[in-house]
Simulated assay, not measured.
Amino acid sequence: MVPARSDADRATNAVLARRRLAQGLRRYRQRAGLTIEDLARGLECSAAKVSRMETGISGIRIQDLTAITHLIDFAESERRDLEELVRRARGREWWQEFSDVVPPGSGTFFGLEDGAATIEIHATSLIPGLLQTADYARALVGSVNGVAPELLTRRVALRQRRQRLLDRPDAPRLTVLMDEAVLRRTIGDGPLMAAQWEHVLRCAESAGVVVQIVRSDAPVHPAEGVGFTLFSFEDQDLSPVVFAEALGQQTFVDEPDPVRVYVDALASAQRVAQAPDISLEMMSKRVKELRTGG
């Protein structure tokens, strides 16, 4: 029998290592029969700090872990596993090379995206970044007033770098549900959009990528007008995470009940969406319209 992999073995990047570390701390605390308040008293810190450590908001240092081992009994393998996760959680990841253009909190998004087994996107106004061409991204980012040319170049490069995950042997399964309004919207000009939709078509015709269009006359569904991304992971111990953004405000949802609301909303949208083959036909027709000016 193949032995089960440890939490450290399953951590594929610093963000997932931090999440596994947080969930491990919570699991071992509960196993010891301690409350958050009990652990906080033993560590001589606030309950809020322990809560932040258990949700991954605050990092856990080796010193913190050493103090915790005086309060909770760990097997030697468990302790080594947690120490390795602490080290990995402090590791450097590729998106840190773009720190000049990565908004606060976006590192968490990139880590979830990079480590997910499945990515499901409900897009209401724009083509998702994983499917954008460089020209589309440049036109989109450049539409914001005051963006310096060098920052524009860096932001487009960041978007292109993210897309490399779709070329990996272990690429995540990507499902994109897009409102028909996205199909009709023009960013830049007609030729740019034609090339963009041709790119989406190529992606959608490859294994592991599904694109479905929700027609404007489709029945109203719970996800109507709400754009979000659902990340799920190969390791069932890691709960799914929802990411939503509005007016620059980022929200991550990982509590089971709220996540279920998004999962159900996504399923409702998929039920009224066009089948993948019909969606491909709609995108192909749109390319012809853009090429001919129709």
Rank of each mutant, 00 (worst) to 15 (best):
L238P: 00
R18N: 14
V209G: 14
R184E: 12
R138A: 13
P240A: 00
S279G: 10
E44Q: 14
A223N: 03
Y28F: 10
I36H: 06
E83S: 03
Q236A: 15
A4V: 12
V210R: 13
R5P: 10
A89W: 00
G294S: 13
A47R: 03
Q23I: 10
T292H: 13
S143F: 05
V147Q: 05
P3A: 14
L34A: 07
S232V: 03
V156R: 01
Q196Y: 04
V209E: 00
A89S: 15
V200Y: 01
I278A: 15
Q250E: 10
V242Q: 07
A204K: 00
L131I: 04
G91I: 12
R215Y: 05
V287Y: 09
Q96Y: 10
T292R: 10
L192Y: 03
Q163P: 02
L177K: 01
G59H: 03
T133I: 07
A139K: 09
R61V: 03
G33Y: 07
Q163Y: 02
D38P: 00
T124I: 14
R61F: 06
V211N: 02
D189L: 07
H122Q: 14
Q196N: 08
R41H: 12
G294H: 14
D254L: 11
F98Y: 15
R10S: 12
T153Q: 14
A89H: 00
D217E: 14
I278M: 11
L131S: 06
S6C: 05
V101I: 10
G227P: 02
A207K: 08
R19W: 04
V272S: 06
D135G: 07
D237W: 09
R41S: 07
A218I: 07
K285F: 12
T186W: 03
V101Y: 04
L140W: 10
S232G: 11
E224Q: 15
D38K: 05
T175L: 09
L82I: 03
A67T: 05
V253C: 12
L266H: 14
P149A: 07
D189P: 12
A273G: 09
G59A: 13
D135S: 15
